[in-house]
Nucleic acid binder design. Sequence first.
DNA 1: CGCAAATGGTTCATTTCATAAAAAAATGGT
DNA 2: ACCATTTTTTTATGAAATGAACCATTTGCG
Lengths: 379, 379
Amino acid sequence: MLSPGHYQILTTLSRGGPCSRTDLARTLGVSKASISGLVRDLLNQNILCEQELVFGVGRPSVSLAVRADAASFIGVSLQQDPAVLVLTDLHGSVLARVEVPRAEDPDLCVESLVDAIDQLRAAGGASTERLSGVGVALPGFVSHDRHTCVASTALGWRNVDIGAALTERTGLPTWVENDANALILGEQLFGPLRGSPDFSMVFVSYGIGCAHIVNRRLLRGNAGGAGEISHAPIAIEGFGAAPCRCGNKGCLETVASLLAITNAARRAGLPEEIGPLAALAAKGQPDALALLHRAGSALGLATAQLIQMLDPSHVVVMLDPALHDSVFAHALRKEADSHILHREGPGTMVTFRDFAPDNFASGAASLAARYFISGSDEL
Amino acid sequence: MLSPGHYQILTTLSRGGPCSRTDLARTLGVSKASISGLVRDLLNQNILCEQELVFGVGRPSVSLAVRADAASFIGVSLQQDPAVLVLTDLHGSVLARVEVPRAEDPDLCVESLVDAIDQLRAAGGASTERLSGVGVALPGFVSHDRHTCVASTALGWRNVDIGAALTERTGLPTWVENDANALILGEQLFGPLRGSPDFSMVFVSYGIGCAHIVNRRLLRGNAGGAGEISHAPIAIEGFGAAPCRCGNKGCLETVASLLAITNAARRAGLPEEIGPLAALAAKGQPDALALLHRAGSALGLATAQLIQMLDPSHVVVMLDPALHDSVFAHALRKEADSHILHREGPGTMVTFRDFAPDNFASGAASLAARYFISGSDEL
DNA sequence: CGCAAATGGTTCATTTCATAAAAAAATGGT
DNA sequence: ACCATTTTTTTATGAAATGAACCATTTGCG
């Protein structure tokens, strides 16, 4: 239906925002004549739209943009219980949302997801006429063909072909991806860092996850295990390196994960909820301050190691909103800064972002959107 | 002269070794007719040659291979003093070699390099008829256009456009690259790991260098600073974290670089040469053993961090031959293994390779060869 | 107001490119 | 000798990109 040329245009527009036909010809290095024909096709199919005129010297140019309603997608996040499902448009806006309990049994899980997808279709109404695919984000390893969950300790799954199951039941093409990868791929397609050729994301949840975009492509690694950061050995003095489930001592996740923080808080007689804990630290409670400072410093050190090794232009750290402006965030930034060597040129920018389980779901939806836009799994 | 199709064929043959026209058609996803025409052009220009027949059921297929003498290249390594220059063919074999003192002053340096290049041309004889380019590897940062050395503390250079200077004086296109990057790019084009889509290299010299290939492309990073590993905080217990020139304590290079090892050996009254030191350790001398064990463990920990973050299929560690089968190497492997989490699928393979200054020079030559083969700076 | 200059977008004949299909070549097996 | 099988070449056809001319629409200037 669409040729590589069409996809190139969609990819360019999605990456760099609206631009004129002539801009496209310049960017893609093809003739205006070719662009003209390809754009006409896409306008006829209601995938592109002409926006406002841009005036300069000469005839004004017409901005071309990808229509948000050109297609819609469903994203499924199994990252936490309950599972979150969203219906998004082609710009990543969430049109509808639903939660379902996350069943351990694969068959039951598929069952409840299919139900939830039907709910989303009903809720989406007319916008689901061009529903084009489903993406699934889950904590675990995914096969190379992105259909099968090869292993997930969190879900207790081994070799569950959830992609094929959902395709069969919904009739929609389905992509499965690791949760951290889905998150960063969503950011690459829909987020503020869209178009940046290299950046990394770190998220702090019950565990700690991480993923990288390098040369515009996801860094998957040989066995799909790239971005593993939670067992980085963080042995800062005075940390009393605690044993980790991986067998080593002093791993990052024994200090900086939400699970580790709340566990330590319980042992210290502090509130176990992260919100009240952060509030207490903000008031100056010494134990809460020390706990969050230690956790933030540890993650900061790991972030510095990441930056030294990959030199990304940005690192986005996704945090619980309660931690956003806390001693955790400050310690993180300070520790990271002090371990990053000065380089020529602009340094890596570290930014914080609010973490919400929905991010994984819309990241999952972006997997399907990506295919719609580029005709492949790469941008 | 050559079309993208021609370059695709050369790239495929260089990556996967000799294969038939039909194999090429299958691999590249184009028709046999197209391949036939493109191959004819390349045969006529003496870039490809037909090798032995491979017999199967029907008509035997003719193996096509890139001719080693299709072109030659000059590689310059400024990694150490003296500088090393090599003349290589299209398979990476060294045809001639020359050393010159590495002048600090840029103009003098260019002068002596031009002289040395003339010597190589003379020594190469007929094989330099198709001399196609020069590559330069240096310790420092290189501009994005790969012509200028932006900064090098080892050379004392800032913004030295050595690429333009050499192009002007030799009439040959010139590429400049960071030493570690040149090394890994050479491995990617000429070495045993050719064709592997993701691997990393670490080399131990007076400093410690590192570079990564990800998704078949060099991981450069935002400011060209990716692969920095020598200041990873390695704070293993009992290591008495020494202050580093970077301002922090316990950096990898304060423990595991040749400079750190020989300095520590001098303080301990041990031989300062790495060969005798390793020999002493092999005989069981406790101080020498402890010193090399500590250094190897530190590098092993850094390697483990690398593997966790990038999950490459291979890591090649380039070591002084004296260390090859020493306690250093064993400690490295052991420490790395103990910090790598089990993953699904085949794990990362860590291999040791003998380190020689010539590796940088032939890596530099590969920069020019790469352009000859792919028509761009990417494979 | 009118016209030149500048730029954006379209049309169309032409060329280039890739392909499918058919033919030719080279071998093993019967 | 003859057929099956596979590789490679040739040839006729069709799709796709292009250059150049052309039309459209604005600003700037006298």
